[in-house]
Design a protein around this nucleic acid. Structure first.
Length: 254
DNA sequence: ATGGCGCGCGCAGCGCGA
């Protein structure tokens, strides 16, 4: 069972690439972030034709998340229970007995800003909620754009990024808290090429120079980590014409 | 890395992302 996450930066613009990619990769489950579509505009028919059902939660202009799956999605939930949030950043569903949580973490803008405070609050609420979810669902995966590079090796220039949003110590501590619930970072279960990232700025030819960050992640519960056979970043999609600034992360479960 | 790109909105140029 192949599961994946991809921040598409507008599903409207990226739909042709997503459809091509689904055909090439044939994943069972795909979590999308930054769909930037209201629900009426979600391309359900096109995805259906490609063999995928979709559970989605969108809003105008910003954010928006979706779970695509070959098998039906059950017990769909939108948002973090008990955390009032206008922004559509989380959707969860059970697919083939595996609980899938698709998350678009707040960006945080800059350290010390209101958006940064919101980011940390949001992650705190997520962490509190997931503690119970992990107990309820032994087979649980958290996939998404975390907007956090957890370690120095996840940043092309750790010195330059030190203390900056996406790599600041409070954000990295929040990531470690999440891991501490009992997750494994699927990417780090395996040997990986050095300097593997998932996001590159559109500017400054950052992709060609591999000036990236690893901020998109797949976290697996203990049972799923046991079953995980491979995990990697699909850089090919970032080479396309009009690419998303993020590359997909894919994990293979037995 | 502190401007540069790409997106949505909506028709000019701004807010936002990361």
């Amino acid at each position: 069972m192949k599961i994946a996450t991809w921040n598409v930066n507008s599903l409207k613009v990226r739909l042709p690439q997503v459809l091509d990619w689904l055909g090439a990769q044939r994943p069972e489950v795909v979590c999308l972030q930054e769909t930037k579509l209201v629900d009426q505009d979600f391309p359900s028919a096109e995805l259906q034709a490609a063999g995928y059902q979709a559970a989605f939660a969108g809003q105008k202009t910003y954010n928006g998340v979706a779970i695509l799956s070959r098998a039906p999605a059950q017990d769909v939930q939108v948002g973090i229970p008990g955390f009032a949030d206008e922004q559509k950043r989380l959707i969860a569903a059970t697919i083939d007995g595996t609980r899938i949580v698709c998350a678009y973490f707040p960006n945080g803008q800059s350290v010390g800003s209101d958006k940064y405070a919101y980011k940390l609050k949001w992650i705190e609420a997520l962490t509190g909620w997931l503690r119970g979810e992990l107990a309820r669902h032994p087979r649980l995966a958290l996939l998404g754009d975390f907007n956090i590079a957890p370690e120095e090796r996840d940043v092309h220039d750790p010195k330059a990024w030190e203390g900056q949003v996406l790599f600041s110590e409070p954000e990295r501590a929040a990531f470690r808290e999440l891991i501490g619930l009992g997750f494994a970072d699927a990417f780090r279960l395996f040997e990986q090429p050095e300097k593997t990232y998932t996001w590159w700025d559109y500017r400054m030819m950052a992709f060609r120079r591999n000036m990236g960050l690893r901020i998109d992640h797949i976290l697996l519960s203990a049972a799923l980590a046991q079953a995980c056979r491979a995990c990697g970043v699909d850089k090919e999609s970032r080479r396309a014409e009009r690419p998303s600034d993020h590359a997909p992360v894919i994990a293979e479960l037995a």
